[in-house]
Amino acid sequence: MSNYPTDLKYTKDHEWAKKAGSNVVVGVTFHAQDALGAVVYVELPKVGTVVKAHASFGVIESTKAVSELFAPISGKVVKVNDSVTANPGAVNDDPYAAWLIEVEPSAAAEFDALLDHPTYVKSLEAAH
């Protein structure tokens, strides 16, 4: 399953998370963008916004569907990928390059509790 990098953490809501120093970068998975279809709109929080694990931090819309983005972890948004809001199709082109936000975690243990690669991939297979 090359569509799911082994060095990432995942959520059941189809977000991925990756450590960047002490911060965590967040995006949506291949499965998420594939299920949505052509992504045409992405709404992200402002830098400084506090996000909460499992709570909505933004919205992603395809031609047909509106879907909420759920934060894998709690913390403060320190970076926002404005190039994705300007060019939402980047999420379809490469969902792992098209990161959405970078978060300064407030509870480090939340990251460790995320799904690892084999567990996430297994959950996708089970859903089929």
């Binding site: 279809g37 052509a38 395809s62 031609t63 047909k64 199709g89």
Partner: peptide, 8 residues
């Protein structure tokens, strides 16, 4: 079918 390769 809602799409084959993609709506766009």
């Amino acid at each position: 079918p809602v799409q084959y390769v993609g709506v766009l």
